[in-house]
């Protein structure tokens, strides 16, 4: 029982850390490095930023209720990030994208080691959170 509680705490803290680092990173890109976020980045930010608050509160609540509130948001963010990556890597043509004036969603700002771009970082963050929550959900359900 005690070790289950431990897994819950660690998982939720892990999710919170991912959300917090992703938020800080995205703010660093836009406010310090002055990269202008495109429309799709904003949608992903809308999903990511509240997760910090939700996971922080969830840390003090039951795992089950935390999953209920956060998993849908994480999935929405993940789908947006996936779509953004498909655009970014030109799997979906740019003309089909919702971006108009300002910054194009296929603008490449950073490219570390040839694969890590900003949309990729976002997808990685949402994937980590989603997978962690799904696993947590399983272990909580199995308990009963």
């Amino acid at each position: 029982m005690n070790s289950d509680k431990r897994i819950e705490n660690v998982t939720i803290f892990f999710c919170w850390s991912v959300a917090a680092i992703a938020t800080m990173g995205s703010l660093f890109f836009s406010e310090v490095m002055k990269f202008q976020p495109c429309v799709l980045c904003w949608y992903q930010r809308i999903a990511m930023y509240p997760l910090i608050v939700l996971f922080a509160i969830g840390f003090f609540q039951t795992a089950k209720s935390t999953i209920y509130f956060t998993l849908p948001i994480a999935v929405i963010g993940w789908v947006t990030a996936l779509y953004h990556n498909l655009l970014h890597y030109e799997i979906i043509p740019e003309s089909a994208s919702p971006c108009q004036m300002g910054v194009s969603c296929s603008t490449v700002y950073i490219n570390w080691f040839g694969i890590i771009t900003i949309p990729m970082l976002s997808l990685i963050a949402f994937t980590m959170i989603t997978i962690a929550l799904v696993f947590l959900n399983r272990s909580v359900t199995n308990e009963k």
Binding site: F13, I21, M24, L27, F28, E31, V32, M33
Partner: peptide
Amino acid sequence: KLIVIISSIVVLVGLFFIGSKLY
């Protein structure tokens, strides 16, 4: 738990500011 969360926030915000100064 409160200590963990608050100290993490402090560390992250600190890193953010150090990072922006360095950049």
